[in-house]
Simulated assay, not measured.
Amino acid sequence: MQPIALVGIGKIAVDQHVPALAASPDWHLAATVSRSGTVEGVEPFTDFAAMLAAREDIRVISLCLPPQPRFAYAEAALKAGRHLMLEKPPGQTLAEVHALQALAAAQGVVLFATWHSRMAAGVAAAKAWLAGRVVQSAHITWREDVRKWHPGQDWVFEPGGMGVFDPGINALSVLTEVLPAPVHLTAAVLQYPANRATPIAAALTFSGGVTADFDWRQEGPQTWDIAVETDGGSLLLRDGGARLLIDGAEHPQGPNREYPALYDRMAELVAAGRSDVDLAPMVHVADALSLGRRVVVEPFHF
């Protein structure tokens, strides 16, 4: 097993990355970097530069930091000659990620911009079923409770945090993976709380009859659905892509292992010496923030 360092020991790292690494046949979690978080039995660092200097044996870094500070850490890792895995979204801006791509290529190291929802159990089968069919329309309903998934995390509402596009980009990562032909955004209405810098809800319209409804204010059961109508029937991805229904009938796809699959993929990329950076989901977010009509709604407080 190869040693790997995990940088940013927050909720997503504890809930997803640490268990995935513990179960991985490819990786051994050898170090963490965090101001306060640690993992039992793993060497902790509070300074990233100190970890890079002290643990030259660790050639692979997984960054789980929020997008705002991520570029500086990513740049430092690549300049140190380490392979790098980025939690979604891969950066605050497209330009940041293009710069990281160029740096990784110049350094001869692997850069993997991950999209965990693409690894959901039903996504590959949905893509295969849609291939060769004509999509007549599609609608995304992605509604969840920000207080549950980002409790007290004000960074999501700061510039670069993306607001409701933090979860919405997961839906867009699935959409861009499964559709047989690309689409582009044509209009957007974005709801901004009066006291926040990023949207809490969004209604998106794309070419090809594709629409999306994102909202961060849903309490109770959460909704992560993508419905597609084609010339050969209907498809529904539910629970973020974990469940696949075709013409109303469930098609079980086995266990949902999004984050373990990401680390499987990273092992393949490192072995092949090849990067994987697809920015299509992030392009849609950038377009929405560019084209979106701003509507101010009531203030939001955690």
Rank of each mutant, 00 (worst) to 15 (best):
R59W: 06
F45L: 06
T205W: 09
P25R: 05
P159D: 12
V134I: 09
A128Q: 15
E40T: 14
T38A: 11
D264K: 06
G163Q: 02
A242V: 14
R257Y: 11
A280N: 06
P19K: 04
A267F: 05
H139K: 11
L279Q: 04
D264I: 04
G168P: 00
G254L: 11
P44Y: 06
V174K: 07
V7C: 09
L279P: 07
V134P: 00
P299D: 02
A171D: 01
M85G: 14
L235R: 00
V39H: 09
G91C: 12
A131R: 11
G220D: 10
A30I: 00
F157G: 10
V178Q: 03
W155D: 08
A53T: 08
Y263K: 03
R293Y: 09
E229W: 00
N195P: 01
A23L: 04
W216Q: 14
I12G: 14
G232L: 06
W216L: 15
G254C: 10
A74M: 05
S207A: 03
P193K: 04
I4W: 02
A197S: 06
A212P: 00
L237M: 05
R265P: 05
A105E: 15
E87N: 14
A272K: 00
E43G: 06
W142I: 00
G41I: 09
S137Y: 00
P180L: 02
D26F: 07
V210A: 00
A272L: 01
R265H: 12
V270W: 05
V146W: 13
A197K: 02
H139W: 13
G160A: 12
L190A: 00
I200H: 02
